[in-house]
Design a protein around this nucleic acid. Structure first.
Lengths: 144, 144
DNA sequence: AACTATATAGGAATAATTCCTATTTGTCAA
DNA sequence: TTGACAAATAGGAATTATTCCTATATAGTT
């Protein structure tokens, strides 16, 4: 038996689907399971390749639509900034970003407390740090 | 005369180009000027549309190659996470991200100090905040 | 002014995502 | 349990973003 009924995250999946009147299909079930297993922030294509091992006929569109649906109901999050075209920032000084998830506007802000936050040593040891930034996501005044 | 020789940022542009043996072409000049004027974190396509008003024959590839070159030499930055496919995160609890700019790996980390940082009131008033995250960019242990 | 390596224009190719539509299938109510 | 139907899926087409290719043009040096 692949899916345990007493698995907490599968219960969350079922509850969230019911709450939003989404049907519990085998495709959605396997997509959610793969998302939940992945610790590497997979793309829709990565989930597609895994899901195809279980359902060889599953379409990419189904996977893509499903992960976006999951993001909409809060079962998963889209990693900040991902997707869409590359965007460029001519301000190379330390600053922070406010992102509107509706219009994709990115607003710069400055904050000395944020600038002066220390990076933990265990990160500095394992990782060559180039930049540090606080990203706040939400809905801007124009969109709400 | 469109470009003032005493303009600080244009001098930076020229110095950086010389430092990296990049020729100062009219195309690069206009692309840099447009990037520097833009406060809205433009995409390559947005810069292309502006540059085309000055040089109607400029190609998208030139603009795209140029903004990426500028990013490589540090004249501009790519906004964190932008470009590439959307990626999904099944951990909906508060956590932070370490990104490797070489392999695009995203590594989760937890930090209570970061979690407890306050969001300034002037942001809370103008913006419906959904998430706050610290993004650290650099090079991971495998890539360096 | 001529030379040469670099940069550009334009179009083709690739990658990521979304749209379209005929068919299938969960779910609900009898 | 079964039938009805709205919702979901598969597969392919279309769209969007980006990169590659190559012949031509040109910045910077001599």
């Amino acid at each position: 038996m692949a899916i345990k009924d007493n698995n907490v995250s599968m219960n969350l999946f079922r509850d969230k689907c019911k709450e939003h009147n989404l049907r519990i299909t085998p495709q959605r079930t396997v997509i959610y399971k793969e998302l939940h297993k992945s610790k590497d922030h997979p793309s829709a294509d990565a989930i597609f390749r895994k899901a195809r091992k279980v359902f060889p006929n599953i379409s990419f569109d189904t996977v893509n639509r499903t992960v976006l649906t999951f993001a909409k109901i809060g079962l998963v999050n889209v990693v900040e900034g991902c997707g869409g075209p590359k965007r460029f920032d001519s301000d190379t000084e330390s600053h922070h970003h406010l992102r509107c998830i509706k219009c994709n506007r990115i607003i710069d802000f400055h904050n000395k407390d944020y600038d002066s936050m220390e990076i933990p040593d265990e990160i500095k040891n394992k990782f060559t740090v180039l930049r540090k930034r606080v990203c706040i996501e939400g809905v801007c005044s124009k969109c709400r």
